[in-house]
Amino acid sequence: MEMKHVKGKNKGNIMMYALSTCGWCKKTKRLLNEMGVEYDYTDVDLLEGEEKAKAMEELEHWNPRRSFPTLVINNECIVGYQEEKIKEAIGA
């Protein structure tokens, strides 16, 4: 699955399932960028075929509703743009 890596401070394992068109996903990416943390993300709407199916399967494991953004911060799952929760989970 194609993952995009954003360089920054290592605060553990941060992974985000996003859509390239989604406003809340953009807000979440902006927040992570402002915090300057290292993270990986994938824009599922830009994937195709098997890759897309695999990403959705993986996402379903964390978030059965398969909604976006879904953030996994050191095995803790946060669904939606939730600024306080995200900051808390990252320990900022």
Binding site: L19, T21, C22, G23, W24, C25, V44, D45, M56, R66, S67, F68
Partner: peptide, 10 residues
């Protein structure tokens, strides 16, 4: 070809 919600996977 249509305005699918940008925050949902169409």
């Amino acid at each position: 070809g249509y305005w699918a919600c940008p925050c949902r996977l169409a």
